[in-house]
Design a protein around this nucleic acid. Structure first.
Length: 980
RNA sequence: GGACGGUUAGCUCAGUUGGUUAGAGCGCCUCGCUUACACCGAGGAUGUCGCAGGUUCGAGUCCUGCACCGUCUACCA
């Protein structure tokens, strides 16, 4: 008898199995010892180290876990590499906040002290999310956990910087950047979010210096930058203003004459067609300024306050306060024409959520490498996007790509590996200076004489480290022991690739003496070609390799796992990661980083609003796991996630995930309850596939047995297909339909009568075992805990469930046929007839409010063939329909009846028929049928249809027409039998 | 301003290359603790497939236009 609890209780099961999995080391990605084993690697899109698990992570990581677990079931070598990124701004903000609470600032600690403090914070409070992922069941190879600031990973980051620098992809330049006045750093365009803002369009007038009493009207949203105006511009085509050419406008404060300039950029239609030009504070204005050699006057401090001592009323005021004040000042001077309510788009800092400030500053920029190739691999399908339509967004971004501002004015991050010789004027470095290693030192490791140098203060954008993730995570943190021998060869790019591989693998530390330890070599030194051709040549120092098996192992690791199989992420991350990772992979590995990109929708609340802390509409996933079980939550999420579209989340909607688990649990429990007393089948480990197959008795198969196994094979095939295109919705649909509708609602029900028969029981239970075993295998990647538990309880195989290879539909079909079982697809149709028979009978009873258990008598009028079918399934039908007896008759009068696919059923009600109601019921059906019959007849009477439509369609219409006519005729007879 | 996606039952969504009477889950109504499961079972109601044209023997499906919703993108101050 069963020793399973009546309802599935996930908590204990989940804890038990996760502990066993981890203890066994089965999540570890290990290189196969035999040839021919396929790799399956996924690297987690590294979550922010300050982050905690939210609903988006649940879906995203469930998908990665499903793919990884399935790969294991398919006998592949699978690895899922976890990790976190260091989240420059977010972490630094947290640590500064903590210091502030202690009454300190980062300046008190100094750079090194602060970084130490941040590390401490990270180690104590960071990476919570990785612990939480274990609760979800994530089968990551935890030993491989990587953090972007790890030594090994950092080596890859700096190496990439140095290479790109020497290739000319990275440069320093004074440009307009997105400045965050709160975080006090530059941001890339991708980190700026445009938001519509309500404000005013201030219309003001400037006097014309040369024409006293005359004014021009100018519109602006930012009067507080007026002090930085160095010109007023209008379009050269604008005839209204041509007379102003060569004249000056009077800037009100600090008062000055500024020239009118003619520039195409000015839109004649907008406002008065007159534009104030503030080169220091507007991207377009800066360009105008450059075209007309205008002075650039910066009137803002880095933290967004006015810096203009000449205008003491505004000096030191916050930019938004100053905006109002400046307008008031204009008003008082009689220069403000009006304040018009106005809405425009303003860029906000993604992290700090304050308006960014266009600001001219020295920054490091990256000209992206391999842009064309990155487009090509996606166009060619070398990398596939699911859903495919996101390729358009991807290509569009690459078509319009701008150089990437990769420097950040932070302390927490990879400090840019550039050193300036002391005394060198950093502000005015020429290209030649930059190539002069006595002035600028760009290298993974510091110069030999650090006392004569000053390192660049800025760190790299976090994304400029995590874009290397798909290969750099395989970079072991290993102190290599290699020596160099010889200098001065020229090598090819291909050769360099190999060297780089070794560097990443820790085999080569460097090709340059390391000042800290002269025994070590520490850098690849690259030199740009002399410009003669596009081919770049590298100065190279040959290596003396120390034979070291562990080091070789690392190279093999990288070569084996890379390219990875898939990246699972949200479409909002296409620019941040997908595109950049592809470019990095192509540049540094010479190969794409992943073959598939799976985009999951964004999770919203039931009203369609994005989840956010301030709305409080974001449930804690751990609470949900508590409530529904990790399996229930995982399954529930997949069930409600439409492919590629956003997900409207509500707890009600994921309940079905938990319910499904419970149903599975109980089906297995019921199976155990049906095990005959004293049977050794389960306890004796006899439910392995081979022994189940041997227990099948093909000579005892009836239509139900054929049908359920045929459907099982269909389900398996559909299941496999759903993985080809990552349609997890379809996966769960297939499983749900097969397991719940076909197996539980029908096959288990018909089994109940078979199980009473000693001769039928064995075969029937073997079929149940095969179905349950297959369902549990198919479900395992989605709901790992419960399936592991049931696999073990029912003794379906040795070891963990994933250690047994999951068969494909074709495999299973072949194995069935090997034991003499060949399935008759036609049985499915017979079973549909049986089901119709049962449904009709039940419906008939319900209409007369007879309870299901009330065993009534049915009379049946049917033709010979149908009678035979009914007869051969009589026991099951009786039980399912709730009939004491089903008696064949030739004629029945005056009883409620229904026309089924296996004949007309009459309910023996001993004359208590409501003839009126019966006739109404029949009429309703007749109306529908007549409509269908007329439609079909019209079709068949139409020569064009008969001539054009394919034969099977015509036959189908004919067959249905015949069925409908027969049914209609039957109904008319019934109606007549009810009297007038 | 561009680009992309969506509009099918009360809600959330499926609907393969046009083809027989358009489906599922949830919710709703009625009944039911029948040898697993009330996290369950039985039965039931519910659709002008956004609108308007077009192609076709045949359109939820293809074409054109429009409307509305959503997302991304853009230097109109």
């Amino acid at each position: 008898m069963s020793d399973l609890a009546k309802a599935y209780e996930p908590q204990a099961v989940e804890e038990k199995w996760y502990a066993q999995w981890e203890a066994s080391g089965c999540f570890k990605g290990v290189l196969p010892t035999e040839p021919g084993v396929e790799p399956h690697a996924i690297t987690i899109p590294p979550p922010n180290v300050t982050g905690v698990l939210h609903m988006g992570h649940i879906l995203n990581n469930t998908i990665q876990d499903i793919l990884t677990r399935r790969a294991r079931q398919q006998g592949k070598a699978a690895v899922w590499v976890p990790g976190t990124d260091h989240a420059g701004i977010a972490t630094q903000t947290r640590v500064e906040k903590k210091l502030r609470a202690e009454g300190k600032s980062k300046w008190d600690l100094g750079r090194e002290g602060f970084v130490e403090e941040a590390k401490k914070w990270r180690d104590e409070h960071g990476g919570i999310i990785l612990k939480q992922l274990r609760k979800l069941g994530a089968s990551c190879d935890w030993d491989r956990t990587v953090h972007t600031l790890d030594e090994g990973y950092s080596r890859a980051v700096l190496t990439a910087f140095v290479e790109l620098y020497h290739k000319g992809n990275i440069y320093r330049g004074k440009r307009m950047v997105n400045w965050c006045p709160k975080s006090l750093t530059a941001l890339s365009d991708e980190e700026v979010i445009m938001k519509p803002q309500k404000g005013f369009l201030y219309k003001m007038k400037y006097a014309i210096a040369e024409r006293p009493g005359e004014f021009v009207e100018i519109s602006t949203t930012r009067p507080e930058t007026l002090m930085g105006d160095t010109a007023v511009a209008f379009n050269p085509k604008d005839e209204r203003y041509t007379h102003l050419h060569g004249l000056h406008a009077v800037r009100p404060f600090p008062q000055a004459n500024i020239p009118f300039v003619l520039d195409e950029h000015v839109d004649m239609e907008f406002g008065t067609g007159m534009l104030k030009v503030t080169p220091a504070h507007d991207r377009a204005d800066l360009e105008i300024g450059q075209r007309h050699n205008l002075e650039v006057i910066d009137v803002l401090t880095p933290d967004g306050k006015i810096n203009c001592p000449e205008t003491p009323e505004l000096h030191g005021k916050d930019r938004f306060e100053a905006r109002k004040l400046a307008a008031t000042m204009l008003e008082e001077m009689g220069l403000l024409v009006e304040r018009e309510k106005y809405e425009n788009n303003v860029g906000f800092s993604e992290r700090a959520d304050v308006p960014i400030e266009p600001r001219l500053s020295d920054q490091w920029w990256m000209k992206y490498p391999k842009i064309e190739e990155a487009k090509q691999v996606v166009r060619d399908g070398k990398i596939k996007f699911y859903p495919e339509r996101w390729t358009k967004t991807y290509l569009h971004w690459l078509d319009n790509i701008q150089d990437w501002c990769i420097s950040r004015q932070l302390w927490w991050g990879h400090r840019i590996p550039v050193w300036y010789a002391k005394g060198v004027d950093r502000e005015n470095l020429t290209d030649e200076d930059l190539r002069d290693e006595s002035k600028v030192w760009v290298s993974v490791f510091p110069p030999n004489d650090p006392e004569n140098w000053e390192q660049e203060e800025d760190v790299l954008d976090t994304w400029a480290s995590s874009w290397l993730w798909p290969y750099a995570v395989f970079n072991p943190d290993y102190e290599g022991k290699l020596r160099f021998r010889k200098v001065g060869e020229i090598v090819s790019e291909k050769y360099l690739q190999d060297v780089r591989l070794k560097v990443f693998a820790g085999m080569v530390e460097n090709l340059r003496p390391d000042s800290r330890n002269p025994d070590y070599v520490r850098d690849i030194s690259l030199a740009k070609g002399d410009g003669a051709g596009p081919k770049i040549e590298y100065r190279f120092i040959e290596l003396e390799k120390l034979a070291d098996s562990e080091q070789n192992e690392k190279v093999r690791e990288l070569k084996f796992w890379y390219p990875t199989q898939a990246l699972a992420t949200g479409p909002d991350i296409i620019f941040f990661w997908v595109a950049r990772m592809i470019m990095a992979g192509l540049e540094f590995m010479g190969e794409v980083p992943f073959k598939n990109v799976i985009f999951n929708g964004i999770i919203r609340d039931a009203q369609g609003r994005k989840m956010s802390k301030s709305l409080g509409n974001s449930p804690d996933p751990l609470d949900l796991i508590e409530k529904f079980g990790a399996d229930g939550l995982r399954l529930g999420m997949l069930m409600i996630a439409p492919k590629g579209a956003d997900i409207l989340f509500s707890e009600d909607r994921i309940q079905s995930g938990r319910n499904f688990c419970n149903k599975l649990w109980n089906a297995c429990r019921f199976r155990l309850m049906n095990e005959p007393e004293g049977s050794e089948q389960i306890k004796g480990k006899k439910l392995k596939l081979k022994s189940i197959l041997e227990r099948l008795e093909f000579d005892k198969f009836d239509a139900d047995d054929h049908a359920i196994l045929a459907k099982l094979l269909d389900a398996l095939a559909d299941y496999d297909a759903s993985f080809e295109t990552f349609e997890f919705n379809r996966t769960t649909d297939t499983l749900y339909n097969f397991f719940w509708n076909d197996f539980c609602d029908w096959y288990v029900e018909v089994s109940k009568s078979k199980a009473q028969s000693d001769s039928l029981r064995g075969n029937c239970l073997a079929i149940q075992d095969l179905c349950l075993r297959s369902v549990i295998q198919m479900l395992h990647p989605i709901t790992p805990f419960i399936t592991e538990e049931l696999w073990s309880t029912l003794d379906f195989g040795e070891g963990f469930i994933h250690e047994t290879k999951i068969p494909t539909a074709a495999d299973l079909r072949a194995q069935l046929s090997a034991v003499g079982v060949t399935l008759d697809q036609a049985a499915i149709i017979e079973v549909e007839k049986l089901q119709d028979f049962v449904n009709q009978a039940r419906a008939l009873k319900v209409q007369y409010t007879l309870s299901a258990k009330n065993d009534v008598t049915f009379f049946l009028i049917a033709d010979e063939a149908d009678r035979i079918i009914v007869d051969s399934h009589k026991e099951k039908l009786r039980k399912l329909a709730g009939a004491g007896a089903i008696e064949p008759r030739d004629d029945v009068q005056n009883m409620p009846a229904v026309v089924s696919k296996l004949g007309t059923l009459y309910l023996d009600l001993a004359g208590s028929v409501d003839a009126e109601a019966e006739r109404a019921k029949i009429d309703k059906q007749l109306i529908q049928l007549d409509k269908a019959i007329k439609g079909a007849e019209a079709k068949l009477g139409n020569d064009k249809f008969v001539n054009n439509a394919p034969a099977e369609v015509i036959d189908g219409v004919k067959a249905t027409l015949a069925d409908n006519k027969a049914k209609a005729e039957e109904l008319r007879k019934l109606k007549a039998g009810l009297g007038a």
